[in-house]
Simulated scan of single mutants.
Amino acid sequence: MSRIDASVPALGTATVATDVSHFLGEGPTWDPIRGRLLWVDIMDGLVYDGRLTDAATVEIDERIEFPDTAGAVAVSAAGEWVVAGTHRLYFRDTRGRIEAGEQLVDGDERRFNDGKPDPAGRFLVGTKGPGPEELLRVDLDGTATVLDDDLTLSNGLAWTRDGRTLYSIDTMTRRIHVRDYDPVTGATGARRVFLELAEGHPDGMTTDGEDHLWVAVWGGGCVVRISPAGEVVGRVDVPAPHTSCPVFAGPDLDTLVITTAIEGLSEEQRAEHPLSGRLFTVRTGHRGNAPYLWAGRPRIRARGAR
């Protein structure tokens, strides 16, 4: 198990970037074509569309409401969005029209959670609920394939720069998994444990240009940098206990944007951490990788087997 303590070097100071406090801010996504930052407030079913300023603050331009929850958002080269709803994906075209896909998961207490495009533009998305949870891959032809069916809470996803290694988080076990990944076909190798945290719960994550992971630690009030060897080599402290997801944004991909939440905080904790739920930014001296874009709306046909 890996511990996060005072011996881990600090990688800059996170500063508040917005005035809006989110109940469950999540899934920041950089749109490199339009220079936009997208993120979600899951339980309110909102996708936020904003601009990253030169001062590393975020100006909100739009709040788009979806029919139920909004677990994650991804963007295509043309500017279409895919949003992970409660039991299905939603598609927003470039005119702002929203259409629902077919139901892909069941259960009144289950919903889609974190999701991202893979190197070929497929959409990987996991579930959250009371029972064994899944990680699905929605292929280019619309077929949904189960990659994992034994998770406690499917969360962050990230690939190495060459697209040949997939990292995925199972939050309640505090584990980051790793497996081989074929960026052309989407085929996966055997899953294995890459790292297990000793405290806090890993949530969303991203990678940098040196193939290090940046993982938000829910309950830990920080984002940690993890080497390809599985060592915690840096941290960014955030004045909000529930850090949920980081992403590198901006034209040079040198600004780390971090979402946070107030979900699960007591009244005393909210008073002690009044900036909880805000977006934060920090320049760490590291740069991220160009984000993978979604391939565009498929025709969902049928749910496949692993």
Rank of each mutant, 00 (worst) to 15 (best):
N155H: 09
P119M: 08
R122E: 00
T173D: 05
L153S: 14
D108L: 12
D180N: 07
A70N: 00
G250F: 04
A74C: 05
L147Q: 01
H22R: 11
D118Y: 00
G230R: 07
G264E: 12
R299F: 02
R3L: 13
P132S: 11
W159I: 00
A271F: 06
I98Q: 01
A74M: 01
A100T: 06
R97A: 14
F23H: 15
S2P: 03
D31F: 01
I64K: 10
P246D: 07
R63T: 09
H177P: 00
D203G: 13
V257P: 10
A77I: 14
L197E: 02
E80P: 03
S227F: 08
T57A: 11
P251I: 11
V82I: 13
S76G: 10
P130V: 11
V8R: 14
D149V: 03
P246E: 04
D237S: 06
T207D: 07
V217S: 10
V215S: 07
D31Q: 08
T69V: 15
G129V: 05
S244D: 12
R235G: 02
A17E: 10
T260N: 10
V138P: 00
P228E: 06
V146K: 09
D49I: 10
L140F: 03
R164Q: 07
I60W: 02
D162T: 02
V232Q: 12
L52A: 01
G304N: 03
R283I: 03
M1V: 12
R306S: 15
G129K: 03
T57E: 08
F194R: 06
T13D: 05
I169R: 04
E196Q: 15
L104G: 13
A144Q: 00
C245Y: 10
W39V: 03
T152A: 14
G285T: 11
V40N: 06
K116G: 02
G189F: 05
A10H: 11
G27D: 14
A6H: 14
F112Q: 07
P274A: 02
